[in-house]
């Protein structure tokens, strides 16, 4: 594409004016806060809002890194994000393969499958909380109907099940996104490849592993990274459904940071943990951008 390079005088000042608001926005609302937070993480201040008179110190990082709660939070974050990605991708591939076929009523089915993506997070949290209710929840009722189950978990209040329960909600909420991307990816795989492979004698399973999966490699990478990044930052489900409990079983980094700040007023260590999260996000984001870039070269 040719880009504008006119002999027009307006063109000299226009870009600066038009880009101004976005630059200000990014500078004041994104970069400045991040820098400020980094600075706070290097001070001794316990209360939010105090100045930087104390000078630089790595105390917060040392105490945060030596705190088993931090590593628990990192572990919970990894399990939560990894579980979400695994569940969403597997369910997403199955759904995309099915929806890629022609069948009567496909349009409606598509909408129904995508529906969870459309629900506000707070609503999803509350509805699932209600369904998980150990005494009156419809989920346990459904489980009891199955002939081989005679005892049901207490879900959100059981340390062994709470994280699983929240991962399930997050999978339910995010897998439609995977479906949409994978469907778009499936459409880019040429039918000729399937026909050629069928003529060569490959069965449906071979075709899936030899043609579909390789064809979806790049989309899958994008899905995995975006879901990881989003799950890292997911706050609503855990905060509303378990508050990080029971006994820290769902205390992911984001929630941990929030409580450090607002329950224990340890801003310094909260921001130190934030920096950890920032590093993790920057690594994932860089990979994501690299993948998008390489896509352009094709």
């Amino acid at each position: 594409m040719r880009l504008v390079d006119h002999a027009d005088r307006q063109d000299r000042w226009l870009p600066a004016i038009m880009l101004g608001p976005v630059l200000v926005c990014i500078l004041l609302l994104v970069i400045a806060p991040l820098a400020w937070g980094l600075r706070i993480s290097l001070t001794d201040s316990r209360m939010i809002g105090l100045g930087f008179k104390d000078g630089l110190t790595f105390k917060n990082y040392l105490s945060v890194l030596s705190d088993p709660d931090t590593w628990n939070a990192v572990w919970v974050t990894i399990v939560f994000s990894g579980g979400t990605v695994l569940g969403s991708v597997l369910l997403g591939i199955a759904a995309a393969l099915v929806l890629d076929r022609e069948f009567w009523g496909r349009g409606i089915v598509r909408v129904l499958v995508i529906l969870p993506w459309a629900v506000p997070h707070v609503v999803a949290a509350l509805v699932w909380q209600w369904m998980y209710n150990p005494d009156f929840g419809v989920l346990n009722y459904g489980l009891l109907l199955l002939p081989w189950i005679d005892a049901t978990p207490k879900w959100l209040s059981d340390p062994d099940y709470a994280l699983l329960a929240i991962v399930l909600v997050n999978v339910w909420k995010t897998y439609p996104f995977a479906v949409l991307l994978l469907l778009a990816g499936l459409q880019t795989i040429s039918d000729d490849l399937y026909e050629a492979s069928a003529i060569d004698g490959a069965g449906p399973v071979r075709r899936f592993f030899d043609i579909t999966l390789p064809g979806l490699r790049r989309v899958l990478a994008i899905v995995v990274l975006l879901l990881l990044i989003w799950s890292f930052g997911n706050f609503v489900f855990i905060f509303l459904m378990t508050q990080g409990g029971p006994a820290g079983a769902t205390n992911a980094l984001v929630v941990h940071i929030y409580f450090e700040t607002f329950r224990f007023f340890r801003a310094g260590s909260a921001f130190a943990m934030g920096s950890l999260l920032l590093v993790m996000s920057i690594i994932l984001t860089s990979i994501y951008i690299m993948i998008l870039r390489s896509q352009e070269d094709d």
Partner: peptide
């Protein structure tokens, strides 16, 4: 046409030099 700037040289339309005239 004026859709690209001229790096060097001159373009005249009629007796008017149009290098810096907008399209």
């Amino acid at each position: 046409a004026g859709l690209e700037t001229i790096s060097e040289g001159d373009i005249w339309i009629g007796d008017r030099r149009v290098n810096h005239i907008s399209p």
